[in-house]
């Protein structure tokens, strides 16, 4: 089976802080992988490196069979841009372009970057908007949308470039609780449809258990536990995983009160 993404013995530091250490991860094409772990465990950094927003210090990262990072070597700008087309990212804080309509947010990159005709790109943008349930908001500006709607637009925007790998960085963490469901619904549809490799950094354990093929628990910049959701979330073996899940579930209980 071909690999969509591979981290090989990757080390990454921010100043004095070690974010990733001897980090290894292989993600087969088409897999839905959830990455869980305490904040500061390096899970978002994994996605940012895969998206080529951050480099690495040691080791090697391959994206869709091509070397993206090797040690501190930075690929030339043009090469970096070509490799970035293999992945799309959805951010915690949406990062929609506030000066563009919802529709333009989605068609702009296909037109400017992929060179697709404006008309075709708009048609595709409208299709994507219907898929995320926002067909009637095409002409709205981002600041007229709720958080959940913004995030659904952001998903559509990333999908418009048709990347084989999609990276979701805590996409429900900035949302009001009542809006989490609509975004998870879109992710679920995407997962059910298949074909796309999905990496989700998430705090939604229930959701991760439902849609992920595999769950990785990270702590201190390393993979601590790696297995099917039934193991990592359902019956964790590692003490650190257990401690983390216990604290998360306690948090959930508190919130429910």
């Amino acid at each position: 089976m071909s690999l969509a993404l591979a981290f090989r013995d990757v080390g990454k530091r921010f100043g004095e802080t070690r974010v990733l250490e001897a980090f290894d991860l292989e993600v087969p094409s088409g897999e839905k992988l959830a990455i869980i772990g305490p904040s500061g465990s390096g899970k978002s950094t994994v996605l940012r490196i895969a998206m080529a927003l951050e480099g690495i210090d040691t080791g090697r990262v391959e994206l869709m069979g091509e070397t993206l990072w090797e040690g501190t070597r930075r690929p030339p700008e043009r090469e970096l841009r070509r490799l970035r087309l293999q992945a799309g990212m959805v951010f915690q804080h949406f990062n929609l372009f506030p000066h563009m309509s919802v529709l333009e947010n989605i068609w702009r990159a296909p037109v400017d970057v992929a060179g697709i005709g404006r008309e075709e790109a708009e048609t595709r943008a409208r299709e994507l908007l219907s898929r995320v349930g926002l067909a009637e908001r095409a002409e709205a500006m981002p600041d007229q949308l709720s958080g959940g709607q913004k995030q659904r637009v952001a998903i559509a925007r990333a999908l418009a470039m048709r990347p084989p790998v999609m990276l979701f960085d805590e996409v429900t963490s900035a949302l009001d609780p009542e809006m989490v469901g609509e975004v998870l619904g879109v992710l679920r549809d995407l997962a059910d449809q298949g074909g796309i490799t999905m990496l989700l950094v998430t705090h939604e354990m229930q959701f991760a258990a439902e849609i992920a093929d595999r769950v990785v628990f990270m702590d201190g910049g390393r993979v601590v536990e790696d297995g099917p959701p039934s193991q990592v979330i359902g019956a964790p073996v590692e003490p650190r995983t257990r401690a983390f899940l216990a604290s998360v579930l306690r948090g959930a209980d508190v919130r429910a009160d």
């Binding site: 998206m51 080529a52 927003l53 700008e77 841009r81 087309l85 799309g88 990212m89 970057v113």
Partner: peptide
Amino acid sequence: EAAASLGFSP
């Protein structure tokens, strides 16, 4: 970062 992730050139 959003622009970079979509493949925009500088």
